[in-house]
Simulated scan of single mutants.
Amino acid sequence: MTELTDPADPGGRKAELAANLAQVEERISAACAAAGRKRDDVTLIVVTKTYPASDVRLLHELGVRQVAENRDQDAAPKAAECADLTDLRWHFVGQLQTNKVRSVVTYSDLVQSVDRDRLVTALSAAAVKAEREVGCLIQVALDAESGARGDRGGVAPDGIEQLARLVADAPGLRLDGLMTVAPLAGEYAGRERAAFERLMDLSTDLRRAHPAANMVSAGMSADLEEAVAAGATHVRVGTAVLGVRPRLG
């Protein structure tokens, strides 16, 4: 029997995404089992940056409810195009310039890249004006501990406490936890598990003063197993789900 091609998806993109999601789900489930954790302890965020809104809609049909973007100029129109998907949660994960904040708070439910006082002030003012509460993760630059500061943004570990207090006290903002990207330099280069374990230690310290700030976002396509093993609550996966970007028009 010949399978009919969906006229709305002639290239079989939905089937491709479904297969990739299933593989990522297997990886997360296996990592949770190996770590003695429940599968429900880890939330998958699909990083849809550079991919079209049509992929976001297909992912939603496949059960994905959390997606992430890193550039406002791409994210804002995409979020607007998917505005009818009211149960979709948008995360902003890129370095955020203050002049983009007003736009970002209109669609982002959570900003994972909070790393400086001025950004907190701008986010708070924009969130209040938009009459929204925006969740915030403090992005931690673990390479800063060894003086090998990269270009991915983030606050040094010794700056977390002060920045967390600022977020917690800011109108319109909610302190949700910490985020990091595995360092490419410094003492944690090539040691993703150790990096994520260090982030978990910092999360424990943070939760002493802010018990509700229990979200730990770490791990991507290449190192999600290490993040789950360390205790991450959220993993950010792009390539393993979306693959190589399809040619557009």
Rank of each mutant, 00 (worst) to 15 (best):
R116E: 07
S29Y: 05
L248C: 00
V140L: 04
R89Y: 12
S217D: 03
Q112N: 13
D143F: 10
Q66E: 15
S113E: 05
L119C: 03
P171T: 01
D205Q: 15
K100S: 05
M215Y: 09
G153E: 07
E25Q: 15
T204D: 12
K129V: 02
L199T: 06
R116M: 02
S103I: 01
Y188K: 04
L202T: 00
R174G: 04
I45L: 11
A185E: 15
S146I: 04
P77R: 05
D109E: 13
L123E: 06
P211R: 07
K49A: 01
A19Y: 13
G11H: 12
H60R: 13
L184F: 02
K129A: 13
A22K: 11
V235Q: 05
V56H: 14
V216L: 08
E192I: 01
K100N: 08
A156G: 06
G219W: 12
G231F: 09
A195R: 10
V111P: 07
R37E: 01
A31K: 05
L224K: 02
L85M: 11
A8G: 11
N99E: 06
N20Q: 15
E197S: 03
A75N: 09
D55M: 13
V128Y: 12
T239W: 13
Y188V: 03
N20K: 01
D169Y: 01
R165C: 01
A141H: 05
R247I: 00
R247A: 11
D158W: 09
T180M: 04
G219E: 06
W90A: 05
R27F: 00
V167E: 13
I28W: 08
D205G: 10
V101C: 13
R118M: 11
T239D: 08
D84R: 01
A230E: 07
I45E: 02
E69F: 13
E16N: 01
N99V: 00
R27M: 06
G12E: 09
